[in-house]
Simulated assay, not measured.
Amino acid sequence: MQLPTPRGPLTAALFERLRRPPHPFDPPSAPAETPAIADEDLQLALFTCYELHYRGFEEVDEEWEWEPSLLAMRKVLERRLENGLARAVPRPPYPPDLSVRRALAELVTADDGPSLSAFLARRADLEQFREFVAHRSIYHLKEADPHTWAIPRLDGRPKAALVEIQADEYGGGRVEKMHSELFRATMRGLGLDDSYGAYLDRVPAITLAISNTMSFFGLHRRHLGALLGHLAAFEMTSSAPNRRYSTGLRRLGGDEAARRFYDEHVQADAVHEQIAAHDMCGGFVREHPSRAGDVLYGAACALTLDRLFAEHVMDHWRCGASSLRETNVMAESR
């Protein structure tokens, strides 16, 4: 993947540094006038820092991953993200008479965001569905990777539960069944570029914030509870929407190969949500009762960001506008 196009002074300065050999530098400053979750420059800078822990960029020396000055800059960016999440996501109370599984279920039930999946099932046109898939490619082409950071930090039943979920995400060791590979087939079926990071320049801050929050929780051991809660909410809100995505893609002419990603999640995530809520999160809270609030907060972050994403997409579509940033990438991919 190539470094993306800068979106402001922060990313312009950062990318100029990253194209050179690793060296100490003073973190560039940028005004914090825009709320962190909607700040294009901040979210792209943080995404770039995190991507060095995944697959990196062709023109960036791998030694940048642990360069102290870059980590110091990332810490500043993370503080803004963390504060932005705290303002956007109230910390849910955890009634002591409820199991964590029940508390998670109540959070999910109380979520009242717009139903993007219902719109995609019944009304979206082909170009809107392609836009949705381009957004989701930022995460789905690395599906499960951010949550895998939790495996070495767990023990006993919670660890076994997470490994059970992740094994399915990675296709049980069969590359053609990996969920990231199934998503590539969906992209190809829609005439989209299925290469890793192809739409990074097109997606807005809210799409990057969803991915960044997962990486933020995953890369910091102090946020282990939040990472587990995030995954639980992810699984508990997956099965029904994926059924609707498949319905919508079938309506628009998508073949079986293009729909397989969604069909696989209908079945798999119906099982995963039970494992995630009961065995993984429930087991973790039994071992660490003081961290129950962290689990619920991580779930609330996942639900809130998904709601903000749906609002962004639907607001643009209601106005007849694209929910993606304007470049020539989509046209060039056809």
Rank of each mutant, 00 (worst) to 15 (best):
E143Y: 01
V133P: 07
L77M: 15
N83W: 04
R136Q: 14
L98C: 13
V89I: 01
F129S: 07
A103S: 13
L71A: 14
A110H: 03
H140N: 03
K75A: 08
A110K: 09
S115R: 08
P90S: 01
A88F: 01
A103L: 06
T109S: 02
R130G: 06
S99T: 14
P92K: 09
R80K: 12
S137G: 07
H135I: 02
R79C: 12
V100K: 08
K142V: 10
D111M: 00
F119G: 06
I138M: 13
A72F: 11
L77R: 13
E106Q: 10
V108M: 06
L141F: 00
V108L: 09
A118Q: 15
I138K: 03
S137W: 11
P114K: 02
L77I: 15
L81F: 08
Y139P: 02
A144P: 00
S69K: 13
E131A: 09
V100H: 04
P92H: 07
V100M: 07
L98I: 11
Q128S: 00
A110E: 09
D97Y: 04
P114V: 03
P95D: 14
D125Y: 01
F132L: 08
D97T: 14
L141T: 04
D125R: 01
L98A: 13
I138A: 11
L98M: 14
T109I: 01
N83E: 15
P90T: 03
L85F: 04
R122H: 06
L104C: 07
S137A: 15
V133S: 12
R91F: 01
R102M: 12
L71G: 11
K142I: 08
V76Y: 00
L107R: 08
P114G: 00
L104Y: 05
M73K: 02
L71Q: 15
S115F: 02
R130M: 06
N83Y: 04
L116F: 04
R136L: 12
D97R: 08
E127G: 01
L107S: 05
F119Q: 10
E143H: 03
D111E: 06
A121Y: 03
M73H: 12
L70D: 13
A124I: 01
P90Q: 06
R79W: 05
Y139N: 08
E78A: 07
D97E: 15
A124N: 02
L81Y: 04
R91S: 05
G84N: 11
A72I: 13
L71T: 07
A124L: 00
L116H: 05
R123D: 10
L126S: 04
G84C: 09
A72N: 14
H135G: 06
L71R: 15
Y94V: 15
L116T: 06
D125E: 08
